[in-house]
Simulated scan of single mutants.
Amino acid sequence: MAGLIGLGQNYRNQAMQGLQQASEMEQRREHMNDQMEQQERQQRMSMVGTGAASGAMIGMQMGGAAGPVGAVIGAGVGWLASSVF
């Protein structure tokens, strides 16, 4: 009888270890997904900033109040580019 109890405990321990490993893998997966989402947001903001700076430079070369307008247009283009790529 003791052999059966020991065998049952072994099975239970193995099952618990398997569940623990599955839980750890799920936590790692969720962490990686969170990191990827943060990187995507950072990339999008970088592209918007680059577009705004480029648009402002082009607008300033055109003269007058075209700088801020160019910045807004450039930011829009940067945002669109980040959505496409």
Rank of each mutant, 00 (worst) to 15 (best):
M1F: 12
R29V: 09
N13K: 11
T50A: 14
G59E: 10
G8R: 05
L80N: 05
G67R: 05
A81H: 00
Q42P: 00
Q21S: 11
G59C: 01
E40V: 08
G59Y: 06
M45Q: 15
R28N: 12
M25T: 10
Q38P: 03
E37H: 12
Q38V: 02
P68C: 05
L4N: 02
V69Y: 03
V69D: 01
V72I: 09
G74F: 02
M36Y: 12
I58L: 13
M25E: 12
Q21I: 01
E30I: 10
Q38E: 14
G70Y: 03
A15C: 03
Q42T: 01
M16I: 14
I73E: 11
A56L: 10
M32L: 12
G3V: 11
G49A: 08
E37V: 10
L4A: 15
A65I: 02
A66W: 14
N10L: 10
S82W: 10
V48D: 08
R12Q: 14
S54C: 12
L4D: 04
G76W: 02
A71C: 01
N10H: 06
M32P: 00
E24V: 09
A22M: 11
S82M: 06
S23D: 00
Q39G: 06
Q20H: 06
S83P: 00
Q9F: 09
V84T: 07
I5K: 05
Q61A: 12
A2G: 07
M62Y: 07
A75Q: 04
Q35P: 01
Q43C: 03
M60K: 12
D34H: 09
R28Y: 14
Q38I: 05
M47W: 08
R28E: 14
R44Y: 05
M32H: 08
G3T: 11
G51P: 08
L80Q: 08
M60R: 13
E24C: 02
G8C: 04
M62F: 08
E37P: 00
G63D: 04
G55R: 01
V84G: 01
Y11G: 13
Q14P: 06
R29F: 09
Q9V: 13
G55T: 07
R41P: 00
G18E: 15
R12Y: 13
R44H: 05
Q61P: 00
L19T: 00
P68K: 09
M1P: 10
Q61W: 04
A52K: 11
M32N: 11
Q9I: 10
A15V: 06
G55M: 04
Y11C: 09
Q20W: 07
